[in-house]
C-alpha cells in the first residue's frame, strides 16, 4: 500500500487531536487560574479544595485519571443513581484539562506571588479594592511571567492527547494503530505520525509565542 493512502485516515485523526488539544488546553487554563488563585485565597475552604485538587491531579497518572473518569465514574454514578457516563471526547477533554490545570495552577500561583509586594502597596495606597488590585495590577503583570511555562504545558498537553486513543477515541494515535494493525507497516506509519505530532507542536509553540508577546507587549515598548 502507498504511504500517501495513510494520510486521509491520519488527517481525520489529526483533526480529533487538534480539537482535543484546543478544548483541553483552554479548559485547563481556566482550571489553572481558578485553582491557582484559589490556593492563594484566605478562605480556608477554597484554599483547601484548591490544594487538594492540585495535589491529587499532579500526584496521579493521567492514564489512570482518564480510565477512572471513563470507566469507573459511570459505575459509581450507577451505584448512587446518577448518570455519569460521558462520551469519550468529554472524558478525554476533562481528564486532560484537569491534569494540565493542576500543573498550570502552580504556575499561576508562583507568578502571582512573584509580583513585587511594592506593586501591591502602591495599589493599596491608591485605594484599590482587593479584587481590582488582582485584576488590574497583579494579573496583568503575572500573566506574561506564566506564558513560557504555559507554552511548555500546552505542548505537553498535545502529546498527552495520544493517551485518549486508549478509550477508543479516534485521534491520530488511534488511527495510526488501526493502520498498523491492517498493514503491519510500522516504520512508515509511526514515522508519519512522529512528524505530524512534531508539526503540530511547532504550531502550538508558535501560537503560544504570539500570545506571550501579546500579553507582554508593554514590556517591549520602546525597545
Amino acid at each position: 500500500m502507498e504511504w500517501t493512502s495513510y494520510l486521509a485516515p491520519l488527517s481525520q485523526g489529526a483533526w480529533v487531536t487538534v480539537q482535543l488539544t484546543v478544548y483541553s488546553t483552554i479548559l485547563g487554563g481556566l482550571f489553572a487560574f481558578l485553582f491557582g488563585l484559589g490556593k492563594l485565597s484566605h478562605n480556608p475552604l477554597v484554599k483547601g479544595f484548591s490544594v487538594a485538587y492540585i495535589e491529587i491531579f499532579r500526584g496521579t497518572s493521567l492514564l489512570v485519571q482518564l480510565f477512572w473518569i471513563y470507566f469507573a465514574l459511570p459505575l459509581i454514578g450507577q451505584a448512587i443513581g446518577i448518570d455519569l457516563r460521558f462520551p469519550p471526547v468529554a472524558a478525554g477533554v476533562a481528564a486532560l484539562a484537569l491534569n494540565i490545570g493542576a500543573y498550570g495552577a502552580e504556575v499561576v500561583r508562583g507568578a502571582v506571588q512573584a509580583v513585587p509586594k511594592e506593586q501591591y502597596e502602591a495599589a493599596t495606597a491608591l485605594n484599590f479594592t482587593s479584587r481590582k488590585r488582582l485584576w488590574r495590577i497583579t494579573l496583568p503583570q503575572a500573566i506574561p511571567e506564566m506564558m513560557p511555562t504555559f507554552g511548555n504545558l500546552a505542548v505537553q498537553n498535545l502529546k498527552d492527547t495520544a493517551l485518549v486513543s486508549l478509550i477508543s477515541l479516534g485521534d491520530m494515535a488511534f488511527r495510526a494503530e488501526q493502520i498498523r494493525n491492517f498493514t503491519q507497516d510500522s516504520v512508515t506509519v509511526y514515522t508519519l505520525v512522529l512528524f505530524m505530532y512534531f508539526g503540530m507542536a511547532l504550531v502550538v509553540t508558535a501560537i503560544m509565542k504570539l500570545l506571550e508577546r501579546y500579553v507582554g507587549r508593554w514590556r517591549a515598548a520602546g525597545r
Binding site: Q119, E121, A122, A125, K132, R136, W218, R219
Partner: peptide, 27 residues
C-alpha cells in the same frame, strides 16, 4: 492620603497617563 514611594512603584504595564487615570476611574 496619598503616598510617594522611594522606589516609585509605578505600574509597569500601564502608560504614564494610565498610571494617573487608573485609580480615579477604577476606584
Amino acid at each position: 492620603l496619598g503616598m510617594v514611594f522611594q522606589q516609585f512603584n509605578l505600574f509597569p504595564h500601564m502608560t504614564v497617563l494610565r498610571n494617573l487615570t487608573e485609580a480615579p476611574v477604577q476606584v
